[in-house]
């Protein structure tokens, strides 16, 4: 008796997981960077005005 699993299901699962996690990481790191740099600019311009 063999298991006879559907191999494609495992391939789909692995690709969905790997691609999803990688894209999410790229998007998150980009957005976090933009947010942090925007905050720095705000703090900088704020200091010139003297708050």
């Amino acid at each position: 008796m063999r298991e006879a699993l559907d191999q494609w299901l495992f391939v789909y699962g692995a690709y969905a997981l790997g691609i999803g996690a990688t894209l999410a990481m790229m998007a998150w790191s980009w957005l976090a960077m933009k947010r942090a740099e925007a905050r720095r600019e705000k703090v900088r311009s704020g200091s010139r005005v003297g708050k």
């Binding site: 990688t22 990481m25 790229m26 790191s29 980009w30 976090a32 960077m33 947010r35 942090a36 740099e37 905050r39 720095r40 703090v43 900088r44 200091s47 708050k51």
Partner: peptide
């Protein structure tokens, strides 16, 4: 991709440190 994410993380960390330093000085 790895290299790009490392640079993005470094820029985010730098910006955070610089902003915090400026706030503290003020």
């Amino acid at each position: 991709i790895f290299g790009g994410v490392v640079l993005a993380r470094m820029r985010a960390l730098l910006a955070d440190i610089q902003a915090d330093a400026r706030l503290r000085r003020r």
